[in-house]
Structures are given as C-alpha cells and as structure tokens.
C-alpha cells in the first residue's frame, strides 16, 4: 500500500520512516561507484587490470601495483567522489531553502567566493599547509553566498533574481581572484590557475585528509536536518504555520551548504554544475523527500565527478582534461534545459 516502512524502537522515542525506493537505489549507485572506482584506478599511463586492482585494494597486490594504486590513484578517486558528494548535497540544500531549482553552489556565487578565499591563501601565504585552504575557502564562500542571499532576497523572493545576483557576485569574486593572481609573479599562480579550473589532478592523501572533518560534520548535520528541509521546501507561510523556525533553520542549513561546498572547492577547485545537476537526477530516482534525496544526490554527485575525471583522463589522452571542464560541458546544456523546460 504505502511506499514506506516504519522503523521504530519500542522503548525509546525513536522512529524513522524509510521510503522503500531508497535502499535499492543507493545500493545500485554504490555498486556503480565501486565498479567505476575500480575502472578508474586501473586506467592511466600504467594500466592495471581490474582483477589486480581489487587484489591490490584488498592488500594482496605486488609492490609496484601497490604504489600506483594505493598511493597515486586511490586518493585521487576518493577526493573525486567526496567532492562530488559534498557539492551535490550542498546543491540539494540550496535548492530546497531557496525553493529554486536553479540554485547550486556555483550559481549562487558560493564556489567563486570559496575559490577567491583559497587562491588568496595560495598566493599570499605560499607556505601555508593544504589544510589552511579549507577555512579560507569557507570564509570566502560564506561571504559570497551570504551576499548573494541577502541581495537576492531582500524585498521578495524571486528565484531568478537570486540566480542573477549570484552570477554578478560570482563575476566580482572572479575579478578579485584575477587581481590577487596579478599581484604576484610566484610560481603558485600557475598552480592556482589549474586548481581553479576544477580538477582532481595529482590529489594525494594530504589533500584528502583536510576535507574529512568538514564533511564529517556537514554530512550528518544535513541528514539530521532533512525533515526541516522538507518543510522549508514548501511555502514560506506553510513552513511557519507548521511551526518551523524558518530563519533559524534556513540559516543553519545555509551554513551547512557553505561548509560542504567550500570543503569541496578547497579540495578540487570549482567543479561547475555538479551541485546543480545531481539533485535533479536524484529527485528523478527517489522523489523530493530529503531523507532519501540527500544521500542519493550525494551518491550521484560523487559518481559524476568520478566519471568526469575518468573521461577527462581518457578522452584526449595523454592530455588530461580537467574534470571541471567535463562537468561544465555536460552541465551547462542541462542548466539551459532546466531554464527552458516549462515556460
């Protein structure tokens, strides 16, 4: 009858409801992600057959395989997946709290702001460790996202205005980034430029580790607030009428989205359109209820970046096309499709 299964604890006031569509979808996506990871780990200048990849991952490979797979390629694949996951969840949250299907970290200027923060650290503090990028990106993302939010919402809440203001803010952040890069002749500029394009090129464990605490806080927090998201996704008046503390919840969720988005930007630069597309694809799979949507969007996002990285590496090999170029090449037409779908 209903698509829900109730999970209840008899003694404690703990109860959840599970949409029966979600577990199989998550399982399937997880399977695809694993397969894609194995494929991605085996692909490169030094190909490794899938069987060997699996054996190496389980700890039974030869020494050189071990180095190629576990030291070089595994962190890169993990960064790709986690970056996609974080961007997609941030996008899903932003789309719900702005009630705007076009919102995403890049469209709201959040990514550009985070990029500005990170580039400033790269250029002005060349000796700073990689983990310093995340807080800097967070500050930039918060400032840019907050500005967009404030300017785009004052005196009404039209979705398109938010997007337009976001485009403007992103352009300003981009201009400031260019200025920062123009102030120095240091070698970090070239590095920063490639990094800004959005790529997981050469990511190692030291790039992965600084991401984890931020995701460790952001992802569970987002999942716990899923039911607030459901209510905020309705009318503003309805949400208030249902007893949601709208400003407080929206602010918290915005902060979570900025955290996730900025952590992703700090790890891999600005990967466009992932945060826009993944939630839409996930909505097709499991519907708009956020309890299932958030994890599904995360999985889809992770898959997208993994795939984009793989395509970027193999398409014009030996030239590596940054994953961000691939996602933008797919994502911009999708954005246009969303824009012109109904009217």
């Amino acid at each position: 009858m209903s698509r829900w299964t109730a999970i209840r604890c008899r003694r404690l006031p703990v109860s959840f409801r599970l949409d029966r569509r979600v577990p199989p979808v998550l399982l399937a996506l997880g399977g695809i992600a694993l397969a894609l990871t194995v494929l991605s780990l085996g692909t490169g200048q030094y190909p490794v057959p899938p069987g060997e990849v699996v054996r190496t991952l389980l700890g039974g490979g030869s020494r050189e395989y071990d180095f190629v797979i576990r030291t070089l390629r595994l962190p890169r694949a993990l960064v790709a997946f986690l970056v996609g996951l974080a961007l997609a969840m941030a996008g899903a949250i932003l789309q719900a709290i702005t009630r705007n299907p076009l919102a995403s970290p890049d469209v709201t200027g959040l990514s550009a702001g985070a990029g500005l923060g990170a580039v400033a650290v790269m250029v002005f503090l060349p000796d700073a460790p990689w983990s310093a990028l995340t807080p800097a990106a967070l500050a930039g993302g918060l400032a840019a996202g907050g500005l967009t939010y404030w300017l785009g919402w004052k005196g009404g809440s039209h979705p398109l205005r938010l997007v337009l203001v976001g485009i403007g803010i992103a352009a300003a952040a981009q201009a400031l980034t260019n200025t920062v890069m123009a102030t120095t002749q240091s070698l970090r500029v070239g590095e920063a430029l490639v990094w800004l394009t959005g790529s997981v090129y050469g990511r190692s464990w030291q790039h992965l580790r600084p991401m984890l605490p931020w995701l460790g806080v952001g992802v569970p927090a987002a999942l716990l607030m899923a039911r607030h998201l459901d209510v905020l996704h309705l009318d503003e008046d309805l949400a208030r009428g249902l007893g949601s503390r709208v400003e407080w919840h929206r602010g918290m969720l915005f902060l979570i989205a900025v955290t996730l988005g900025s952590a992703a930007v700090a790890a891999a630069g600005t990967l466009g359109f992932v945060g826009l597309m993944a939630p839409h694809i996930a909505r097709r799979l499991v519907g708009p209820a956020h309890g299932g949507l958030l994890p599904t969007a995360g999985m889809v996002g992770g898959l997208m970046v993994l795939a984009a990285d793989l395509i970027g590496r193999t398409l014009l090999a030996p030239i590596e096309v940054p994953a961000g170029v691939v996602t933008a090449a797919v994502g911009a037409p999708y954005f246009l499709y969303l824009l012109f779908r109904n009217r």
Partner: peptide, 17 residues
C-alpha cells in the same frame, strides 16, 4: 500529508505510530 506531522516530531522521532 506527512509533512503535517512536522510539529509533532522530534530529532529522532520522525514517524511514530
């Protein structure tokens, strides 16, 4: 319709009988 239950739910009590 389930969203109507929002004010009756808690952090961990999402779907009581």
């Amino acid at each position: 319709v389930a969203l109507g239950r929002y004010p009756h739910q808690g952090w961990l009590r999402h779907w009581s009988e």
